[in-house]
Amino acid sequence: MSATTPLLQIEGLNAWYGEAQILFGLTLHIAPGEAVALVGRNGAGKSTTMKAIIGLVRRQARRLTLGGADLLALPTHAIARLGVGYVPEDRHIFADLTVLENLDLGRRQRPADMTLPDWTTDAVFDLFPQLADMRGRLGGQMSGGEQQMLAVARALVGNPSLLLLDEPSEGVAPIVVEQMTRALARLKAGGLSLLISEQSSDLCAAICDRAYRIEQGELRAHGPRTGQASETSLKAALAPGNAPTR
């Protein structure tokens, strides 16, 4: 297989939340080192797509693979161990655990064959210096922005090859969004693959190479970035009403 083989490959993904079907035949892929945006309105199925990848909702697909490994039959923890880091919407920090304890739960040794940087606890403190100053603080006593950083850091110390970020800028201060954008750009530069869901595409436009727009559980637009396409063209491709450009 060539270097352009996708890291994550999804074909015909259906997913359910309880009895209700949320996703209808979603198809997308992410190449190694690529940052991909998933945009769409509230309730379009962005979070469900993330949960379907990590295995937190009932799903079915023609294909759902990470680096060639089938994810469909695996339980959530095994998918995480294969290299999927998950930063959920609302962050889901363990409120009664300290920052260090939260990180400790996420920590996993970097696979020997991995070429990405090793995300040790110290490395994530370097990425988010605020966290280093509050190692002993309980997760429940942190602000939304601080929790967001901790959620990303907690996923990073597991040394994933793909990071799923569900609404990383939701409910955090603009200054934190800027900081998060810089941090994510640094992660991408390090070679990590990213799947980022956003309602507003500002953060995505700054980082992402390509974007998918979902509406009511179906893929509606696919904005590729070819060569030096500007942020505005990416945004334009994603504007409601545009047909898929593939």
């Binding site: 959530t76 923890h77 655990l97 739960l105 996420g106």
Partner: peptide, 25 residues
């Protein structure tokens, strides 16, 4: 202990514990 941290974490949020690669079973 780590086991204790796992118990406390799972008490609060089982799904997140699994999503961090910890075998719930």
């Amino acid at each position: 202990t780590r086991f204790g941290r796992l118990i406390r974490a799972a008490t609060q949020d089982r799904e997140m514990v699994a999503a961090l690669g910890i075998n719930e079973a």
